[in-house]
Design a protein around this nucleic acid. Sequence first.
DNA 1: TTGAAAGCGGTACCAT
DNA 2: ATGGTACCGCTTTCAA
Lengths: 340, 340
Amino acid sequence: MSDKRRITLKDIARELDISVSTASRALNSYPGISEETIQLVKEYAKKHNYVPNSIAVNFRKNRTQTIGMIVPELVHPFFSAVISGAIHEANKSGYRLLISQTDEKQENEILACRSMMGGNVDGLLISIANDTIKTDHIQEFLDEGKPVIQFDKFSELLPTPKVITDDFESAYTAVKHLIDQGYRKIAHINGLSAVQNSIDRLKGYKKALEDHGLEFHQEWVPHCKEINESEGYDFAKQLMGLPNPPDALFCITDLVALGAMKFLKEAKINVPEEMGIMGFSNWKISEVMSPSLSTVEQHGFKMGSKATEIVLNLLKESSLGNNETYKIDTDLIARESTLK
Amino acid sequence: MSDKRRITLKDIARELDISVSTASRALNSYPGISEETIQLVKEYAKKHNYVPNSIAVNFRKNRTQTIGMIVPELVHPFFSAVISGAIHEANKSGYRLLISQTDEKQENEILACRSMMGGNVDGLLISIANDTIKTDHIQEFLDEGKPVIQFDKFSELLPTPKVITDDFESAYTAVKHLIDQGYRKIAHINGLSAVQNSIDRLKGYKKALEDHGLEFHQEWVPHCKEINESEGYDFAKQLMGLPNPPDALFCITDLVALGAMKFLKEAKINVPEEMGIMGFSNWKISEVMSPSLSTVEQHGFKMGSKATEIVLNLLKESSLGNNETYKIDTDLIARESTLK
DNA sequence: TTGAAAGCGGTACCAT
DNA sequence: ATGGTACCGCTTTCAA
């Protein structure tokens, strides 16, 4: 196999008959080097295709120019948008992104963190897994002086900056939209009651009901475990079987709404006439469904670039930041499923 | 800011009054170290939470345990599945994945490659951008002795292993399915004619027509540039406006099929009765569309894990591999849009 | 079984 | 303006 060794600073120094330090300074345009030498070295370097060994540089400088990013799921329109935004922002500053996923399992999250510890990343962006309770594996980054930013799904146990969707506000707006459209008996398929997003969306839902004089019915708020299509189907069925069934449904995510829509279609319950449906996240499927689904756009790309921007700033100031929360605005997208 | 320094081998050696080399050997369980010393060192290391500085290790060993992966687009069901498979496979072997995206621009691809050169990755997995013509930036990896695997979209100019969809076969099967369903005037919205996938799908399309005694009409094969929904819409319109319009449509991707479907709906042309439609890739939208879209499942996860498996093997054997092609099988998924 | 020391490829401090 | 050199943390060869 070809094993063409790259040329090193030492080679340049030897060939040009100067010292390694001079060569280094010339290449980095340090003050106190003659224009002549700089030219000489740079030309030689270019001609011989010199590329500094960044492992050596990083080793010396004790950093990697790499940000770690851990998400629960990668094949997911929202998270892939977040990643995309993060890559974009990181690259602008010459940073790279090391990515891992947990499949929502704490056990994998611990492995991913371990793999990124030990000098592999300068900072960490993480959206914790649903079943993450202990956070020691993340705390270790902070203990080593490496900044951590939590995004989307987070733990209050970690004193880090957070970049999240304004779930309360978004849910409030979504439910208000249903109310404005004339729906009065609004149910909400919520998520795991231990996850902050679910909690906040539930709060927004409740507040919207309250502000508009609508009663809260506990039996109208089932909780998903997996947050998938079949749960949406099952809960819709369950809700519609109630003695006092709702006339609208605010779903924790578009996928759940899809399942619900499927049931309603089978049950020949008309959307939006007899039943309004609202999703969350604005996946492509929401636009494609028939009837098309009203939903909330979360701007994942922006979340990713914001989180990265913060971590890069902290890196610049050698700070771990505080536990501020940055909220990313959302947009209500009204489509057929709520416009009767 | 906390800047808690990690303990190093040197610290251990000093505290235990042994040499650094002994400490190193003990921790790595080298032969020729007394059981006693091994115990001693390992215990101390554990107690003091010693984590080897992997930058230093990598620097010394001239490797990173990191694989680079470059995709055209990240917010994309197929590519995110590929990435997911790659991460999964890499992690199994203790490797990490550095990810970048090009937005289909050669210019970004060059930047991404540069960022991964210089010792940041041990090998590269890449799916080239549509407008990539020169491949020097990728060749450089090979020149440095780093294995490169191309997947999905590739260039023949690079003598590397490739992991691709069996496009010819898949297209053949898809078109045959249309023929079997009774369609006889089958059009094909193809992709960029310089991209290998498009070429091969077109070949499969032609061969299927030929094998079944159907004539090939040049005007029934428009070429997308962007491969998006609006092109699907426009080309469907164009095709249906022809003096001799087709009665079925094989689209290069589900998104294009979605656009086509939209036009047909507007034009009140019934699918599948008057017009059969076939997509490619089996995105979630294909299942959600109404009527649901027949398509071809590409198994992106498998493609990602296979590509990673190959690069890890090459790394193990210090080889660059040959230019073998590994084809990932596909599955035809028949749905409403072709079942008349 | 263990230690000493070179060295991976740079950077940066101290001289000159 | 330039050179010499220590050093980052670890692995590995050579010697004892």
